[in-house]
Amino acid sequence: MTSINQKPSNFVEIENQFILRMPTIKSDNGVLRPHPATALLRELLSETKTNEELSVDPLKDRLFIELNPDTRKGRVKFDNEIFEARLVDLPCILESLKTTDKKVFYKSADICQMLICRTKDDPFSNSDNEKEKEKNQSEFKKFQWSHGLAPPLKNVRRKRFRKTAKKKYIDYAEIEK
């Protein structure tokens, strides 16, 4: 953004917001379910709301994020578990809005990316077939998440976004810069 040299009083830091998606694991019957860490994390966070005696952050020295925005790779450490993570672009514009009365809402920020965690031994990724597929994907497409967060926006890129009719050959490398 181009802006004039802001005086300190006028300068505000615009927050970055993103979604952290904790990993899923495959149960014995083959159904995907949230990793147990998810429930624990949620419990800890809800404590901050319910337990008035609490004065020390229950997350202190327990949850860590490591992120490299250039490679889009990262790690999430929760207690003794370390999850591999990848920063992907969400397909839909997602905004956060805050309210005091649930009637009027103020836009806080656009949320455009999601940090997806997975366990190291996630059976999902280990098939050779899939690795092969991934190799063939362009670096760009690899980080384009296909799904919105809400159920009806599953596969939204493919199913709900109308395709743009390109007029002529486009230099994609240029666009993706």
């Binding site: 997602l94 905004e95 805050k98 809402f105 806080s108 967060l149 809400a150």
Partner: peptide
């Protein structure tokens, strides 16, 4: 406008 306070927050996803 911060989201890191105790306000009630919702997310809106544009289809």
């Amino acid at each position: 406008l911060t989201a890191s306070d105790n306000c009630h927050l919702i997310l809106a996803e544009y289809s």
